[in-house]
Amino acid sequence: MVVHRTVVVTNPAGLHARPSAAIAQAVRRLRAKVEIRNRNEVVDAGNILEIMTLGAAQGAELQVTAKGPDAELALDAVIAEMAKRYE
């Protein structure tokens, strides 16, 4: 099962350390391979090192793709973490 969704980064500081860590943790708990695309760069959402180098600033349009049995759940989890507001 493959699902895609586009999401816009709303946090003023962009996709910074805490959301990156939360996304990686959420994805690792599920049976899905999730990729996040920012323009030409694609990273594995389960790898904190890769997410932290994505450089997604506020307003960036990210394409999230999930594959696997928990694809839908993983996509929801990633988008929920991206929407969370951090100080």
Partner: peptide, 9 residues
């Protein structure tokens, strides 16, 4: 400070 990808860890 909030981390950004330019900070390179």
């Amino acid at each position: 400070r909030n981390y950004s990808s330019e900070d390179r860890f």
